[in-house]
Design a protein around this nucleic acid. Structure first.
Lengths: 342, 342
DNA sequence: ACCAAAGATGGTAGCGCTACCAAATTGGCG
DNA sequence: CGCCAATTTGGTAGCGCTACCATCTTTGGT
């Protein structure tokens, strides 16, 4: 005798329950949900009535197993607390909230190994798309991405060799623009202060260096970096170090806004006039930059928009019309403020 | 003739491939992975060798379908960019990264309706546990949580009536402590400035009010609130409003640190002496509070630890030993700094 | 009126895994 | 030395859904 296993799922209604109640085949219910246009209006109404009555919610696991494709976007970022990535992620969530896609978020902690592990893990779920931060994947990660069998969007940066698609901007140009602005404002002994020197920060530094060298101002002693995670207090400390090393400093381009804020506070504390004695430029243009006193010049980046755009491109690719422009440069904007208005 | 469907999964090895290669039954492979102690060491070695050689990764969807339980933690927070929740989430991720559990993160945007929708969605995945921010779920959400059939941890706050478990602290006590500190420091016309008045902020306000009334200092005109999302620039604006409304203000307790920072910057801009003319207290004690000039007194909360603790409790409950202490109060700490050192 | 093409619906057979039970093996003890 | 319990392994039958194909209409052209 065949005894059906007592409903493991705790009695939640299944697609067959709906089918029975609506007087149709299970497959028709499935179709009514996924390709409504292929089912007559009449049946569609009956089916939806049955769904409402039973409170049926499709099981995403069964769906993924049967269709060999999960309605999941895998998203990999190096940090959850860094405001910049938080905004990218927010853009992704907002763009996906009305879609059937779920999000699988991974935190790589800026580690290539961790990225490989998570990519491996995410791959086992057969995601509908992958969004990863950065363009400096390890060879293993890159291979994993290439063989993922789904659209891949690399975000935050642009570069010459996308795995599939890219949305971001040039950090090198950003660093150069920031530095050229300081030079143009009359600053000469301009330092670079950078925490958490990930590849993006490295490229900002390269931009700084290019601008300084072009102006004949570069001096390696002007550069202060650390691999430590960025924070406002770290910005303060690093600025003190930089000043100790190079007392004639008259400007700083900071890796990011947290560092810039730390520098500003230290200037207040040490009674160093901003922008008169020292000019400060940040990166990302967080809300607080325009409120600070004096307000801080920064490179505005379009984080939220990057998230939205990445999803839009992935969605288009899933729908079959891969955007012809595979690399999207959203640029940046120099926000001139009091901290460099000499 | 039965023609096996061409491997939908794109040829990834399955558990049977591993079993064949290791010369054992599929079920033994399954066991070797989930309950290794029930499999002889001999076979375990062979199986793992086969797994490594084939590069086998279990399909979580198939696993979830067969076992009616997904290795997923559902996590619901009201905001992804608010640093406070970002830290809770980070604590959760860090605690879970070495476990087989994945995380399904949902953003409710402070909306009860959105919370219900996400809970419904998450429920359909049969998560191993649910972690939700706050204790003010709608009746529908509450019912959804109670019938989730898995451990549930409400985080960020404590309260009398947990769905299952709770980790947090008393926002009312926090608000009271902050306000009493200002009163103790000699401030009298102490304002409350609060953005994004979610239930937690409401309770901080209640604590403020209790302290002010106890000292005979309460005046409704001292309270300035808005439902708008909190930001540093908003803090600045609200402080200006508060000052316009009540020019004799000599202190402010801010809803959170962003607001407090906005207040500080406006004081700089308007040449209002801190702490002499105005005392400032924030809430959460973000890193920048101790770096600010003057440094800002704040209520330090243990966000990261809340995330870790919530996971620990859920994990214990899953393992069958539900912690006897179902409500964990992690408290807070008043950090006295220059902004109230009159 | 007839037939091909297009549209709507259903049946069957898995997707990859694990719950449940059965069978085989081992060991301890009277 | 046999018997029962404990331990180790395997077989079978689904979990809830969808891909694939078959079947049954309907439509329109000649």
């Amino acid at each position: 005798m065949i005894k059906p296993r007592s409903r493991r799922g705790g009695g939640r209604p299944t697609i067959s329950d709906v089918a029975r109640k609506a007087g149709v085949g299970a497959i028709t219910v499935s179709r009514a949900l996924r390709e409504p246009e292929r089912v007559s209006e009449e049946l569609r109404r009956q089916i939806h009535a049955a769904i409402d009555e039973l409170g049926y919610v499709p099981d995403p696991n069964a769906r993924a197993l049967a269709s060999a494709r999960a309605e999941v976007f895998g998203v990999l970022v190096p940090s959850l607390t860094n405001n910049v990535f938080a905004e990218v992620v927010r853009g992704i969530y907002d763009s996906l909230s009305a879609s059937p896609f779920r999000i699988q978020l991974g935190n790589t902690h800026y580690s290539g190994l961790e990225e490989e592990r998570l990519l491996q893990l995410f791959g086992s779920q057969r995601p509908a798309a992958l969004i990863v931060a950065g363009i400096d994947q390890t060879p293993t990660s890159r291979k994993l991405l290439e063989s993922a069998g789904c659209p891949v969007v690399q975000v935050m940066e642009t570069g010459p060799d996308p795995v599939d698609m890219m949305v971001g901007f040039s950090h090198l140009d950003g660093g150069r623009t920031a530095t050229e602005h300081l030079i143009g404002a009359g600053y000469r002994r301009i330092g670079f202060i950078g925490a958490r020197m990930d590849p993006r920060s490295q490229r900002r530094l390269a931009g700084y260096r290019a601008a300084m060298e072009a102006a004949g101002l570069f001096d390696p002693r002007l550069v202060t970096t650390t691999p430590v995670l960025s924070s406002v207090s770290l910005g303060r400390e690093m600025f003190r170090d930089a000043l100790a090393k190079m007392p004639t400093l008259d400007g700083v381009f900071c890796n990011n806004d947290d560092i810039a804020l730390g520098v500003l506070f230290e200037c207040h504390r040490a009674s160093i006039a901003v922008p008169k004695t020292i000019g400060i430029v940040g990166f990302n243009d967080l809300d607080m930059m325009q409120v600070a006193f004096p307000s801080i010049t920064s490179i505005r980046t379009h984080r939220y928009e990057i998230g939205r755009r990445a999803v839009a491109m992935a969605l288009a690719a899933i729908a079959g019309n891969r955007p012809e422009q595979r690399i999207v440069d959203l640029g940046f904007e120099l926000k001139r403020r009091e901290s460099t208005a000499r």
